[in-house]
Structures are given as C-alpha cells and as structure tokens.
Design a protein around this nucleic acid. Structure first.
Lengths: 213, 213
DNA sequence: ACTTGGATTGACTGGTCAGTCAACCAGCGA
DNA sequence: TCGCTGGTTGACTGACCAGTCAATCCAAGT
C-alpha cells in the first residue's frame, strides 16, 4: 500500500471515528482527543488532515448532503406523478437513516437542527433541499395533481419537517425502530402529506391505501 | 418597593435578559457575563438567583412549556371536532411565536431541537406534548373524523414537526414574517395535515383541477 | 445609632480543551 | 548507507469561562 493510499485511508478512518463520537457524545460534548482515540491515531494527526474540529463536521455534512441533493434531482428528473416523487424522496431519507443511523443523527442533530452553529453555516445548502422539494410540489400543482392554495415552499418545509421529526423520534427513541416501522413510516408520511395536498374534490383512482373509515 | 419585591423583579430581569442573549448568540456561544451585562446587574447576582447557567435556560423552557401543555389540555377539553382542536393548538403555538419570537426561538433552538443537550433533559415534558396531541388525533379517529390507518403518535409528531419547521423557517428567515403570513401558515398547516388525516371517501371523479386558486 | 440579614458586587480560581510544534519514523531514491 | 520527504506522534500552551467567595451596600427593625 503506497503512502498516498494510506493517507487517504487515515482521513477516512478519522471521519468515520468522528461520526461515531459525534453521534454518541454530541459535537460540543466531545474532545478532539476522543476522535483521535476512537480512530486509533495520535491527536495531532487529526490536524494534519483537517484544519479544525469544525471542519471535520463540515466534511461529514457536506459529503452526505450533496448525496441527498443529487438524489432529489434524480427523482425529479423522472416522469412520474409528484406523489411518487415525494415518496421516493421520503424513501431515500429514511433508507439513509436505516443504513447509517449514526451519520444521519449527526447531520440532523448537529447541523440541520442547530440554528445557532452549523445550521447557520450550511443554511444555503439546507435551503436548496427545501427548494428542490418545493419544485416537485409546484410541478404537481401545475399538473393539477395538487391543490393550488398551498405555498410550495411551505409544503416542502413541512414535508421535510415531518420526515425529520420522524428521524428525530428514532434518534430520541420515542418511536420503535423495527423494519416494519420504517416501512410504515414512509407510507404514512407520504400518504398523509400528499393526501392533504391533493384536491379534495377529486379522488385518486389509483390510491393504494384507501381504507374505509 | 420592598426588598422582597425587588428580588423578584431582578430575577425576572435576569431571565428576560438571558432570553434575549440566548436568542441572539445562542446558549453555547454566550457567557454568563453577557447575561449579567444585558440585565445591567453584576456577574455574581446571576448565581444568587440561579444555581447555574443551565438552570436559567431550564427555567425559561419550563415556564413556557407548561403553558403549552395547559393550553393543549384546555383545547382538548372542549367539545369540538378534532380538526378544530388541532387548529387551536397550531394557533396557540404560532401566536406564541408572534408575540414572543425571542423566547420561542430559544425554546426551539436550544431545547426542543437540541437532542444532545437540553432536549435530552426535557424529553419527558416534550414527549408529553406529543402525547396530548396524539390523544386529540386518537379521539378524532374514534369519532370517525380521521382515518384509522395512521398511528396517532406518528401523526402527532409530524403535526408538531410541521409547525416547528415553520417556526424554524421564521427563525432562519427562510420565510416572510408578515401578519398575513402567520395567518396563512396556520390555515395551511391545519388544512393540509387534517386533510391528509381525514377519510378519502368524499366525492370521487377522475377530474384533477377542482379547487379555485 | 446600631444591628442584622439579604441583595449586590466583581476579582479571582480551577479546570477544560482547541490548536501548535518540535521531534520521530518509515519508505525510497541516490 | 545516507539523507530526504511526508505521514505520525503527543506533550505543551494559551485562551476562555463557569462558578466561588469575601467584601460591601442597603433597608428594616430596635
């Protein structure tokens, strides 16, 4: 293994360790030495690869958030009803959590919901996600799939807000985290929000839930 | 003015100052001396009235959150449809923000959304609010006003989550904050979430446009 | 006037940590 | 074999700040 390749690996090792430590103790309640210990490297090496403690978190966030933005773009590019697009977005986020709960916990707790620290720093990127979702909603409105009297950005924010609240529920352990729970959650949030966005007068013939109440 | 009355006042003065400082700089990014300066009192006096910096924030949160819990109880005691109850809850929260944006900002940013610090401490109280809202939803289901295939606690979480996301949008300045915006927001969130929770049974037709917007 | 006790003051202490830096080591080319 | 380069080490420093405490002030009672 070349020195170059090793270097890349150590950087990754440190990032992964930081993710676990941030998830366990929180960004403000951990020391840089905790990260180094978890990674099994010397204290100083963290500063060889990163300018500061902040930069480690920034890197974790940016890496992941860009994936989300790309995923939304990809979803939006498909020619399917807005409801399906939203469901795909919900699916992506929930699957992200299912697959890497620690990383998502860090992103949500330390960045997305941290208005006074990193949330403010990354506001533009966070906002971009809202706007992309808003575009899906707006398109849905144009095609007559959604009612017109709801501001797309508002709808976007509480669609995302509802999902984030679910993840928070899992993070906080307020909600059970079995496989079926994840599936049900995805269904319910999409059904409910879309249900609320769809015109009241028109039933959707293809509605998959359609319980009789 | 008696010494007793003065004492009470100073405590209040410190709490109000802390609220402003926390809102402006964030709990972690301000010093106790900032609070004392803002209040116009000596550093040590903060510790005369409060055991620690944490306790100041705890007091601000508890004071306000108990009002919310009481408000939900009061709403729930009325004999009106679940939809109206939820609208009243949304109304209370939004009005709280409109009337005291700094306090609500602190509560949301530093407690409600701070999973690693005060959010964890106050989890039981926060949870109680979700449960109270869940009860409203469950009652609505029993009376046939809401569909049965959505878990009340889930619905509660994203109802609250959606509202909190709105407040966050105002805090982050992602959303305009005019009087009409507040009113529209209240309407939209209630309409949409309730719309999604209500049975789909109503009039069917393949049509898609429908609403006047 | 004098005492008493709570309110008020702000200098000081102790501990914590992010970030620095000089030394160390391992591979590689000359 | 001998530098040279760049990854690697961890003790150390400088800054910051929550919380303490002894001193002072003031109002009410005697």
């Amino acid at each position: 293994m070349t020195a170059q390749a090793q270097a890349v690996d150590k950087r990754r090792v440190i990032l992964d360790a930081a993710m676990r430590v941030f998830a366990r103790q929180g960004f403000h309640h951990c020391r840089v030495s905790d990260i180094a210990d978890e990674a099994g490297v010397a204290y100083g090496l963290v500063y060889h690869y990163f300018k500061s403690k902040d930069e480690v978190l920034n890197e974790l966030f940016t890496e992941r958030w860009s994936l989300l933005l790309a995923a939304i773009d990809e979803v939006d590019a498909q020619d399917v009803p807005a409801r399906d697009k939203l469901r795909a977005v919900a699916n992506f986020i929930v699957e992200s959590y299912r697959h890497e709960p620690e990383l998502m916990k860090v992103i949500i707790v330390e960045v997305t919901r941290a208005a006074n620290s990193f949330g403010r720093t990354h506001l533009p990127e966070i906002r971009r996600a809202y706007e992309k979702i808003a575009k899906i909603v707006a398109d849905g409105q144009e095609r007559g799939e959604f009612r017109h009297d709801v501001d797309p950005l508002f709808a976007s924010m509480w669609f995302y807000g509802a999902i984030e609240q679910l993840l928070s529920g899992w993070v906080f352990e307020l909600i059970p985290t079995g496989d079926t729970d994840f599936e049900r959650a995805k269904d319910m949030v999409t059904e409910t929000i879309c249900g609320g966005l769809e015109p009241r007068a028109a039933g959707d013939g293809a509605g998959s839930s359609a319980d009789g109440a």
